[in-house]
Nucleic acid binder design. Structure first.
Lengths: 120, 120
DNA sequence: GCTTGTACCTGACGGTTCGAGGTATCGCAA
DNA sequence: TTGCGATACCTCGAACCGTCAGGTACAAGC
């Protein structure tokens, strides 16, 4: 339990979920995404570049994202956007997340009462 | 992306959170907790014994849980309950979870609009 | 006697994230 | 013009968590 300071110890696959969400709105490049996630979560969550870039590359390899090199100034940005497959995955991830969090939320609430809501 | 069939790929520290929640209500033993989690989440989440037992032992070692051996029939059950420290940690974990999921939820909703809420 | 269910436990494996490091360009200020 | 910080990309090793497959043992039913 020694190391581990930054983010709270939940989350797994959450970076990917957030990536898909943000890219569903508009194409962005890696460095931008790192800060967009921080902004979008009100600073609550923060994933380093060492977390984001590998995911980006993996998703691109899976055909979920499409990369496009853009020259801006004298620099090159790699802008990512969702493919058709990506949109499907985005929708799936999102609903999976909602199912899971609802289940947990339910478990955190449903003590002695609230069992009625379990209508098969 | 090969392996990974059972649970959706979010979650980290979630088993621990659920453990604390359930034990805050009443003392339980390991095997019971495994099924209680499944029941409490409507079957959505399922953590095996290989996940639960190590956490139980770790939390006991940290003074978060107190174990008590009970002889039932010809068998011995190890019943766990929250210590004072455990109750603190339970509250902390719970509020942390809520903060995080709210942040993510917010990120999943707040598209182009809702930026106004970012005062300062 | 054998299988199934209860009840405990462990260890190897794999995936994900973290942290620190490395490169290069641009703009600004000293 | 030199240095610094911000931008922008990338990679690697370590750590952690959860999964899966195993292993023990008792009780009850067939």
């Amino acid at each position: 339990m020694a190391g581990r300071k930054t983010n709270p110890p939940f989350l797994n696959g959450v970076p990917e979920l957030l990536l898909l969400e943000l890219l569903a709105r508009r194409s962005m490049y890696g460095y931008e995404l790192v800060q967009a996630i921080r902004a979008a979560t009100g600073g609550e969550l923060e994933f380093g570049e060492g977390c984001i870039y590998p995911i980006l590359h993996r998703l691109e390899g899976q055909g979920v994202l499409a990369a496009q090199r853009q020259a801006v100034g004298g620099r090159v940005r790699v802008v990512y956007g969702l493919t058709a497959k990506g949109k499907t995955q985005w929708a799936e991830s999102k609903s999976a997340w909602q199912r899971v969090t609802q289940a947990i939320h339910h478990a955190l609430q449903g003590g002695e009462r609230g069992r009625a809501a379990l209508a098969s």
